[in-house]
Nucleic acid binder design. Sequence first.
DNA 1: GTCAGCGCTACAGAAAATGTAGTAACGGAG
DNA 2: CTCCGTTACTACATTTTCTGTAGCGCTGAC
Lengths: 104, 104
Amino acid sequence: MVKRVRGSKTGRPIMALLDLLGRRWVLRIVWELREEPRRFRELQDAIGASPTIVNSRLAELREAKLVELDADAGYRLTVLGRELLRLFLPLHLWSEKWAKAVAT
Amino acid sequence: MVKRVRGSKTGRPIMALLDLLGRRWVLRIVWELREEPRRFRELQDAIGASPTIVNSRLAELREAKLVELDADAGYRLTVLGRELLRLFLPLHLWSEKWAKAVAT
DNA sequence: GTCAGCGCTACAGAAAATGTAGTAACGGAG
DNA sequence: CTCCGTTACTACATTTTCTGTAGCGCTGAC
C-alpha cells in the first residue's frame, strides 16, 4: 500500500511520488547516492542536515524501495532508485542553462 | 545571481535547483500547471495548501523564471518552466510502475 | 579492558506550514 | 454613487517540522 502522506490523499501514484520527492533533502539524498554508496555520517556531512531528518528521510526512501542499506557498503540506490535517478540526470545539464537564464 | 537558499550554499546550479524543487508543494505546483494556466485560488484548491505557502512558492517560482503571472490567463509555466516539465513527464509513467513495486 | 566507528535517537529551541480571516484593487450592475 | 463578485495576496495564532547538540547501543580492533 502506498503510504498516504502530506497532501497526497488521492492515492494516485504521481501525487504520492511528487509528495515524497518534494520533501526537504529527499532529492538531494538521491543525488548524493548517484555514483556510489554512502555511509550515514558521510551522507549527513555531505548535505549538511541534522541526523534526525537524514534518518527519517532515509527511512521513507527505504520504505519507498528507492534506497537500501547494505551493511558493508552503506546506503545505496536500489534498482528502482537508479531508474528514478536516470530520469533526473538530464536535470544536471539543464540546471546550467537555467542558472544562466535566471542570472540575467 | 542564483539565490542562495536553504542548504544550497555551494552556488552550483544543480544544488540550487534541487533545493528549489525539494520544497513542499513546488513540484506539485509545476505539475498542476502542466496543461493550462491556473488562477491563484484554483491552484490553491487543487493542491490543498494554505494561501500563504502557495503565494510564497509562486513568488519563488516566478523569481526562478519558471512560472509567470498573466493578468488575463492566470499563472502559467514560462518557456523555461515548460522545458523543466518536459524532463519530468516520464515520471508520470514511471510512478505507476513504482507504485506497483512498492505495493507488494 | 579502552577506543573508534557505525547507525541511530532524545530533546529543546528555531523555523516553516497551516487554517482562518481579512485587505486592497478591479469591473460591472443597478 | 453603492453594492457585489472576483482577483491576488497578507496577518496572525496554532501546529508541525527541522535544526543542533549530545549521546546511546553495538561491533570490531587492539
